[in-house]
């Protein structure tokens, strides 16, 4: 992943990973259209509970993440079996990173920006009770750290690939390929951070250090979702629930 003499510091792989990024506006439009259609199917008086609405948003965002993965360089070379194993392993991390990325751009401590463009005051979240509000706070803390680092889109694109191509996933048919992608992306991110942010000591390390935090928070979110599902509070028959069960089966 070495940069060309014409453009030192910009590994072509980094540009290629960014080019795989979805069109945010398109994704937003699709999800808003889906929610409007869903709402119009309900009676005016039948207002969905906030949490189930969040679940529908997360479900629709997950669809867009699967679409993104399918179109990604390297990923499309894998067999469907391996694609499924990688996505089963990291779907909640990608969902969380998508949320955190949005908060980094949003740049406000007192409110959350949803994928629909709606803003939710954090005080309403704290009304939801400890598990959810403490997870949201942890998410806000992660977003704050990445904001302080002024993480850019290229770095975010690399982090997404590092999460997706996890060579530790079990039963991979082509584990070597996944490992080689992980190494290439690591090398490209390192080179990019060294050249683009020379003044920032160990920027690469500071970015990579966020990944276990994303993993741990996403695991907590999965447990919470599982609990809510057992309470019958999560709309069923959707991708979210399928992915939740896939990991636990």
């Amino acid at each position: 992943p070495h940069s060309s003499p014409m453009n030192p510091g910009m590994p072509p792989l980094v540009l290629e990973l960014v080019s795989c990024d979805p069109d945010e506006e398109q994704v937003r439009g699709k999800i808003c259209a889906y929610l409007h259609q869903e709402q119009s199917g309900r009676g005016k008086l039948d207002k969905p509970r906030p949490f189930s609405l969040l679940c529908v948003m997360a479900d629709q965002t997950l669809f867009s993440i699967v679409e993104w993965a399918r179109s990604c360089v390297f990923f499309k070379e894998l067999k469907v079996g391996d694609q499924m194993r990688l996505l089963h392993n990291c779907w909640s991390e990608l969902l969380l990173l998508d949320h955190i990325c949005r908060q980094v751009h949003h740049g406000r401590d007192s409110s959350l920006l949803l994928i629909t463009g709606q803003e939710v005051d954090l005080s309403t979240v704290s009304d939801a009770g400890p598990p959810l509000s403490s997870m949201v706070q942890r998410g806000q803390e992660l977003a704050r750290r990445l904001q302080l680092l002024q993480v850019d889109r290229r770095e975010m694109a690399c982090l997404k690939f590092l999460i997706l191509f996890n060579p530790n996933v079990k039963l991979l048919e082509n584990q070597q390929f996944v490992e080689s992608v992980q190494e290439q992306v690591n090398g490209a991110l390192l080179e990019y951070t060294l050249y683009s942010y020379p003044q920032c000591l160990d920027r690469f390390g500071q970015l990579i250090l966020r990944l276990p935090e994303v993993r741990s928070l996403s695991a907590q979110a999965e447990d919470y979702l599982c609990y809510k599902h057992l309470c019958g509070e999560v709309p069923c028959n959707n991708l979210l629930i399928e992915m939740l069960h896939a990991k636990r089966s």
Partner: peptide, 20 residues
């Protein structure tokens, strides 16, 4: 529902043919 393969939706999404 029991008969449905547990990861049917993801499998469908990854396999679907967009050209149609």
């Amino acid at each position: 529902k029991e008969g449905k393969k547990p990861q049917a939706l993801l499998h469908y999404l990854l396999n679907k043919d967009d050209s149609k």
